[in-house]
Write a protein that binds this DNA or RNA. Structure first.
Length: 491
RNA sequence: GGCGCUAUGGUGCAACGGUUAGCACGCGGCCCUUUCAAGGCCGAAAUACGGGUUCGAUUCCCGUUAGCGCUACCA
């Protein structure tokens, strides 16, 4: 009868930092899933921690998502603007007895180091976490409660976790899960300052926003039973959970600055193509089921499935990312690449008034010639600079390597003359003319070819010479050779 | 400390009871060659360890070890 409801998923970052690669991968999976299933992707900013929250970082996160090509259908919503909702939910749980007020002093997390220090001391063996979990307010009598209220002690609201039984939920990646309730402490829902904790706000919002699938990092797996309990108490049907494994650094530690860039924006700045980054990210913790690796976005959407998500943490491998970038620089139709190269030329102020800007066909052909040797977008304006402007220099290493021979100045003069006299300007004509000069001088063609390459583009590392000549055009080539001769003499 | 999750070459993934354990990155070599890439070919390199179950375990079960996660009035 009624067609199955379209899935609704969300990406819910906290503005405590930039968009990092782990978050980007989570966002990508949500986006791929939504597109694949014809569902809806929401963006929700989880900014309930006033201490760490930095509103100015939100824009950077949105920018990162846009660069990645991840567009959301609803939002962004801000939890900081939905506070009454969480408060009301907490009050409802309180009224129904599923939660209770707690008058304990707030205890900040001690962290793993403190626990370790304690071990060596050998005094009492009570584990830190056990100490923290103890809260006697669970069993406070009505009179005691009233007393605390009269004293004006600030109160938090905690969830009353059942002392017995088990809590179960299904995870699309990790399978059916269950946890003994006695392992779950009475967690805080509403802080004494009236702001909700993550556990509360996330569940209230996911219910309110009718989220059907929660795709998020596996660091949330252990806390999911708490949320399953909350869904129950709030009378809502829990969504499908899908926890995706984490991305680690090369030392298997949580990815951090020590491992190189962790913010997505820096990869944009470095000259990676968003589609390459997407492809790379998609294969971290997911596989289409076979050996395919180069998967363009359209196909990624078609093939994505939660069933292909792995359960093991993956290490971020920069070398592989670079390989993906070369693939996307080289394989797609050149037209797909043009906008990115154009942006790069503009960034380097090489676009205005250039041949590239008013001769699309030439631009495409030139990019096509250069791209097999590129690894990052910046290559178009660094070593390939000579293709887009007459203002290029001669690379020292190239001069050292190919401008040594003292016969070169004379030979280059003859080459310039021969090229200038050519009635036709194409690959074969340039080839024949160049080889003829070399033969007449009794030297190997390579000597002249390599020296000429350095003269007309300034680099040793560049595309094959005669195709380069065709792209640059006769006038520029002849002029550049003649202009270079004095420098060659000095090399 | 407690609880949980995970375990295939250095890295990312395949093989979901029967394969000479496959692919890719990276690494080494060769070919091609007009520099440098790309490309082609070849090579080194893995089922963490110990017990079971089974005719047969990378695959299923248990234990050990290791890594990670959670254990906060962080998310």
């Amino acid at each position: 009868m009624t067609s199955p409801e379209k899935p609704r998923v969300r990406f819910a970052p906290s503005p405590t930092g930039y968009l990092h690669v782990g978050g980007a991968r989570t966002a990508l999976f949500n986006w791929l899933f939504a597109r694949r299933e014809g569902g809806t992707l929401l963006l929700r900013i989880e900014d309930t921690d006033v201490e760490r929250n930095r509103p100015e970082l939100v824009d950077g996160i949105l920018e990162g998502l846009k660069w990645l090509g991840i567009e959301w259908d609803e939002g962004p919503f801000f939890q900081s603007q939905r506070l009454p909702l969480y408060k009301a939910a907490a009050e409802r749980l309180l009224a129904g007895g599923a939660a209770f007020p707690c008058y304990c002093k707030a205890m900040a997390y001690a962290g793993g180091d403190a626990v370790e220090e304690q071990e060596g001391e050998g005094d009492d063996e009570v584990p830190k976490a056990a100490k923290i979990a103890a809260c006697s307010c669970h069993d406070l009598s009505e009179a005691e409660r009233a007393g605390r209220e009269r004293e004006g002690i600030p109160r938090a609201i905690r969830f009353r976790v059942p002392r017995t039984g088990v809590t179960r939920f299904d995870d699309a990646v990790f399978g059916p899960r269950e946890l003994q309730n006695e392992e779950i402490e009475d967690f805080v829902l509403l802080r004494s300052n009236g702001l909700p904790t993550y556990q509360l706000s996330v569940v209230v919002d996911d219910i309110d926003m009718r989220i059907t699938h929660i795709i998020r990092g596996a660091d949330h797996l252990s806390n999911t039973p708490k949320q399953a309990l909350l869904y129950q108490s709030l009378g809502a049907k829990p969504p499908v959970f899908a926890h995706v494994p984490l991305i680690l650094g090369s030392d298997r530690k949580r990815l951090s600055k020590r491992h190189g860039a962790t913010n997505v924006g820096s990869y944009a700045d470095e000259g990676f193509l968003p589609e390459a980054f997407r492809n790379f990210l998609a294969l971290l913790g997911w596989s289409p089921g076979d050996d395919t690796e180069y998967i363009r976005t359209g196909e990624l959407v078609e093939r994505f499935s939660l069933a292909g998500v792995s359960r093991t943490n993956a290490i971020f491998d920069r070398a592989k990312l670079e390989w993906f970038n070369t693939q996307y620089l080289q394989k797609p139709p050149v037209e797909d690449l043009l906008p990115y190269v154009e942006a790069e030329l503009k960034r380097a102020r090489l676009w205005e008034g250039s041949q590239a800007s008013h001769d699309r066909a030439w631009f495409a052909r030139t990019v096509d010639l250069i791209r097999p040797r590129t690894r990052l977008l910046g290559d178009f304006t660094t070593w390939a600079r000579g293709f887009f402007t007459d203002d290029y220099g001669y690379d020292d290493e190239a001069r050292e390597k190919f401008w040594k021979d003292e016969r070169l100045p004379a030979m280059l003069t003859k080459l310039a003359d021969a090229l200038e006299a050519l009635p036709e300007w194409n690959h074969d004509a340039c080839d024949a003319a160049s080889r003829a000069v070399a033969a007449a001088e009794g030297v190997k063609a390579g000597l002249l070819i390599n020296a000429t390459r350095v003269a007309i583009v300034g680099r040793a590392v560049a595309p094959p010479l005669f195709e380069t000549m065709v792209v640059l055009g006769k006038d520029r080539v002849v002029e550049r050779i003649r202009k270079a001769i004095p420098s060659v003499r000095g090399a």
